[in-house]
Design a protein around this nucleic acid. Structure first.
Lengths: 250, 250
DNA sequence: CGCCAGGTTGATTTCGCTCAAGCAATGTGG
DNA sequence: CCACATTGCTTGAGCGAAATCAACCTGGCG
């Protein structure tokens, strides 16, 4: 599935940045690439290809050989892993500023995950040789990636521990707690509204349960008046009450 | 792959101090530090402190501020995380050649895990300022750490998926499959003997179950003639049969 | 229109957790 | 050296939460 390629003229575009250059990238400050010198930025600008993707598009599939890394300029990408039943489970989300595919790139292996666009996104592709050259010339760049990776690792380990000693309601509350930072569309007094870009199945996968179980968990939260789900929007009348479900962790 | 890294008999101290220098380190080829130039190795040799630890010793506790990184020269270290009930769960193992504590070091945070010695070990400590200086001067060094971290991350994600769609017997078999590379003491025809440095509780934590459940799982494996546990040694009469329990994954 | 994927709901089962007791090995103080 | 506590492991009984199986509903789409 191809999306349009807008190199020159602006279009109706999720992220209205007319300029393809990294210098104009809104997200650059948030990326690992932020400390590069002018020459390196120029190099990247010359070789990278920027594209706009729509939900459902796939940047790469699990098992594909890795041709380079992707830098998310705007939008949202979901990283999935096929479980042995054939269906895929959402493992992690990548936001504007995140660079993805760098793991397989580093290891020189095929992709371990698939990358699927969840919200209209603008993504730059930096091909392998360039990425490697720049990476090797910039110690700080690698260190920023390293820091990012270690944070993800901590999260993953927490998630595992949590899955063994928290019940679903608690994990659900925790998930909403994580998501609220990115997807809260309103937030006044104690109330809050979330606009999640996730299907039920994806939410279920994120906390490691079956869709049916997710459905029931949602039902219970609604019965208790903690959160109301309608399609992909969630209304939380009392934020504090919902997050009181989460025991002391960290 | 040979399983034993220390050829010395177990009751004497793993290594007396004569050769503290990294130049003599058996594990150096396996560490991330392997590509350093002579000057950097010398720097490390001068500032590092090497020590021998015995099982039960703790390198650092979760919550301690991070003073530097530890490089495991020989032996085995267990990384634990306290869960909110107060007891600690084994999260990961660190072998000869591994450098630990680098995550908190990079993030400039307190340690997220505790590091406890499981087998007599020889560990070098490299204090923060030096580590940082060398790391910043060696792009390749950071990249090797990065590669290591991403591999750990993959493992962690697999572990999570596995915990949601494999039953305990399968996870158990998988654990033994992982451990056999390091702890198989004998391995002829189809038979195999493991000498695990882990308590039942630790094994239970590694696959995310309660000790009682682990006990029962072991019982079942024995009833089925797949593996026989006696103390910390495991006898496997038919390796292929045991690992047939593991469904096709990754 | 019929088809299909995603979602909800209900009935049933099963796996692993909790609680509780017993046991062996080790340690401690009298 | 023995009585006693402690810790790690095993086993049993019962329970409960989540998976499974199955039906049904909904909206989107060819």
């Amino acid at each position: 599935m191809t999306a349009k390629d807008d190199s020159a003229p602006p279009r109706t575009d999720p992220s209205p940045d007319q300029h393809a250059g990294c210098a104009f990238c809104q997200a650059r400050e948030r990326t690992e690439w932020c400390g590069l010198d002018r020459a390196d930025v120029k190099t990247i600008d010359e070789v990278k290809s920027a594209r706009t993707y729509m939900p459902g598009d796939v940047l790469y599939h699990q098992g594909d050989s890795c041709a380079g890394v992707y830098c998310v300029r705007a939008g949202l990408i979901g990283l999935r892993k096929l479980d042995h039943d054939g269906n895929s489970a959402l493992v992690r989300l990548a936001y504007a500023g995140d660079t993805i595919g760098y793991r397989s790139f580093l290891a020189g292996e095929t992709h371990h995950l698939s990358a699927e666009v969840l919200k209209p996104s603008r993504v730059c592709f930096i091909e392998q040789a360039t990425a490697r050259r720049i990476l090797e010339g910039n110690p700080a760049l690698g260190l920023r990636f390293l820091r990012h990776a270690t944070r993800d690792l901590d999260d993953a380990e927490d998630k595992f521990l949590q899955s063994t000693n928290s019940d679903i309601r608690m994990r659900m509350a925790h998930l909403l707690f994580i998501l609220k930072d990115r997807f809260a569309t309103e937030n006044k007094d104690g109330r809050m509204t979330l606009e999640l870009p996730l299907s039920r199945q994806d939410m279920a996968a994120m906390i490691g349960v079956r869709p049916e179980t997710m459905s029931r968990a949602i039902r219970k939260l609604e019965d208790d008046g903690l959160a109301f789900f309608s399609g992909r929007t969630v209304r939380v009348p009392d934020t504090a009450a919902l997050f009181a479900e989460i025991e002391f962790e960290h």
